[in-house]
Design a protein around this nucleic acid. Structure first.
Length: 585
RNA sequence: GUGCCCGUAGCUCAAUCGGAUAGAGCACCAGCCUUCUAAGCUGGGGGUUACAGGUUCGAUUCCUGUCGGGCACGCCA
């Protein structure tokens, strides 16, 4: 937390302007005072457009109002000057002393600098990745993982009480298809060849799981494979065409044949895939507080109970043998099935129960991070929450556009079915965790991401992450060659830091807490990435223009205090993004 | 066909919920290492923010239309 003797200047000056404003307008007038950082040094450090906002209602020129506001502003020892510019902007200039003090601030509160209580400990959940445990995570999941983890870190830093959650789709058809796929591969290992459906899981990891079972249990689960083809047309035998119906028949037959042993296979592949997924994410620096099982919602009756609730509120009806939810009442384009003709609940049904459960756990804000291809799914989920009498505005869906892979200048396929996908693990091994994490959050999450594999692999030293890390390593190197005590820098006299580049750097350090807050407010961790690049850029420029280890001790200590503070902020920022800050490169 | 998102430098992307002269990186050109890490720095060329209107002190941002691109439109998950 920032200590009370060193203010947030945006907040501080906004308050002064508020007091000034109420000398010329009625105190019960609602005004929004927003300070923005200026782009040009000649415009000062902070700028406010309040005068232009008031111009219309006061019937005065913006510049006249601006002058009145400046005259009415209470004095501040941090304010060097305030002036009117342009159409009526009020430009505020910080004193050098105010900026120089920031270096001390950072060094005296190294781990907490950048944090704030903006979130007021509000209980917030971030649910992300939530990939089907039916195969390895691919590079599309990687983006959701990097975004979600960074966002959760940013929210935590901004003072929210964050819970990271992974929703495990352990119930449903996709798991059954994987189970069937594994059993078929297992049968092959026992020299029993049943045509492998083209719409089953083709990936090599399926065979690997089958081998594990075969090694442990030999032919124990062979049973009567011929019965598997009961009720299927001959075309399936030739493995030319298999439809979804064929697959469902195969699954049904497998369940019948295997009996209790089906549960063994199902559980084995789930445990195996989930473990792999958890491990993969951990190596990517992404961890979760809660792994929430979809199956548990069936086991404890939550799904049935949720459906009863909707039934009581008259939002369900029967048609064509299925049960429908009236999502059109809430703006969806059509009503949606919650229970199929065959009596099975749909994924949507358990999802409603899941979201009800989230609210019952007391989260004041819930963020779901979904792939952008799910955008059509939003109205029905929000509709269901409204039907249950909940405030759907407390559910924020952050859509993450898929990363489109390019290989040899062409789009590369990345379906989990085709077996040709690029996995997150492969990507990590090729470009490293740090580069992958940084690269993923370099751009706004709702923008398409072109991921050029050749570039990322062959020219990874061009990745911007090295630029930032290099700045950190350079500072470490300088400080290692200095023989003083770090504690001396905490109180070093920084009054000599008056060069433009030094003042720019100090202002940049002051900006860090505001940047974190903005990133939290806008759910935009990419702002941190851009901030770090700018800070690193200004540092590299400083490094090339100014020597730090100089004979004059007071001057040396002042400069070292500044670069030590920069190192700390680089470290704090990189940590938010899950990227390491190396001492050497 | 309907709905949602998007269109900014040659390429990949920014632009603090409408602000001042639209910014970076890569690529290209010209310079800087007997001195703290050259994975760096300095300078330069590059734009009618897809197009046409509208709203106002002010538009890349908001509204309408056109063109172009992506995604979604299952009793799948």
């Amino acid at each position: 937390m920032t200590s009370c003797d060193y203010p947030n200047f945006k907040t501080h000056f906004a308050e002064l302007l508020r007091q000034a404003a109420y000398t010329i307008i009625s105190p019960d007038t609602a005004i929004r005072i927003e300070l923005t950082r200026t782009k040009q040094a000649s415009h000062g450090d902070y700028s406010c457009n309040l005068a232009m906002q008031l111009a219309k209602s006061l019937h005065q020129s913006p510049r006249d109002i601006a002058n009145k506001l400046i005259d009415a502003m209470p004095a501040s020892l941090y304010l060097d000057k305030a002036e009117v510019a342009g159409a009526g902007f009020i430009n505020l200039f910080l004193t050098h002393a105010a900026k120089q003090q920031c270096a001390h601030q950072v060094l005296q509160h190294p781990d907490t600098y950048g944090k704030s209580d903006y979130g007021h400990d509000k209980k917030i959940q971030v649910e992300f990745v939530s990939a089907n445990p039916t195969g390895p995570l691919h590079v599309g999941h990687g983006r959701g993982a990097a975004y979600g983890a960074s966002l959760a870190n940013v929210l935590t830093a901004a003072g929210f009480n964050v819970s990271r959650e992974f929703y495990v789709n352990d119930a449903g058809r996709q798991m059954d298809i994987l189970t069937l796929s594994t059993w078929l591969r297992y049968l092959e290992l026992n020299d029993i060849y049943i045509p492998f459906p083209q719409n089953a899981y083709q990936g090599n990891y399926v065979s690997v799981m089958a081998q594990l079972i075969h090694q442990a249990h030999a032919d124990r689960y062979v049973h009567q494979p011929k019965l598997l083809l009961d009720g299927l047309p001959d075309s399936v035998l030739k493995a030319v065409v298999t439809t979804d119906e064929h697959l469902d028949i195969l699954i049904g037959n497998a369940k019948k044949i295997l009996g209790q042993d089906y549960a063994y296979f199902h559980n084995f592949v789930l445990t195996e895939q989930l473990g792999d997924c958890r491990n993969d994410l951990m190596e990517f620096g992404v961890e979760f507080d809660v792994w929430f099982s979809e199956q548990s919602l069936y086991d404890n009756g939550s799904v049935a109970r949720t459906m009863e609730l909707l039934e009581e509120k008259k939002y369900l009806y029967e048609q064509d043998g299925a049960i429908w939810f009236r999502s059109t009442d809430f703006g969806d384009e059509k009503d949606r099935v919650v229970q199929r003709e065959n009596g099975q609940y749909t994924y949507f049904a358990s999802d409603i129960a899941y979201h009800l459960n989230k609210f019952e756990r007391g989260f004041e804000q819930v963020i779901n991070i979904w792939g952008a291809d799910h955008h059509g799914y939003i109205p029905r989920v929000k509709g269901a929450l409204q039907a249950l009498g909940l405030d759907s505005d407390k559910l924020e869906i952050a859509l993450v556009q898929f990363a489109v892979l390019y290989r040899d200048g062409k789009k590369a396929p990345m379906s989990t079915r085709s077996g040709e996908f690029v996995t997150l693990r492969e990507l990590r091994e090729e470009v490293g965790k740090d580069a992958a994490r940084f690269f993923y959050v370099m751009r706004k999450s709702d923008q398409h991401l072109d991921f050029d594999l050749d570039l990322a692999k062959s020219q990874s030293n061009e990745n911007p992450v090295y630029y930032v890390q290099y700045a950190h390593a350079r500072i470490c190197s300088v400080l290692a060659q200095w023989d003083g005590q770090m504690s001396d820098l905490e109180t070093a006299d920084t009054a000599t830091l008056t060069n433009p580049v030094e003042l720019t750097l100090l202002q940049k350090l002051i900006d860090f807490p505001d940047t974190v807050e903005m990133a939290a407010k806008e759910y935009s961790p990419h702002l941190i990435a851009f901030y770090l690049r700018e800070l690193a850029s200004e540092f590299h420029s400083y490094y090339n223009s100014t020597r730090f280890l100089v004979p004059e001790i007071p001057l040396q200590n002042a400069r070292l205090a500044l670069i030590a503070a920069i190192r700390q902020v680089l470290n704090n920022g990189l940590t938010l993004l899950g990227v390491s800050a190396p001492d050497k490169m």
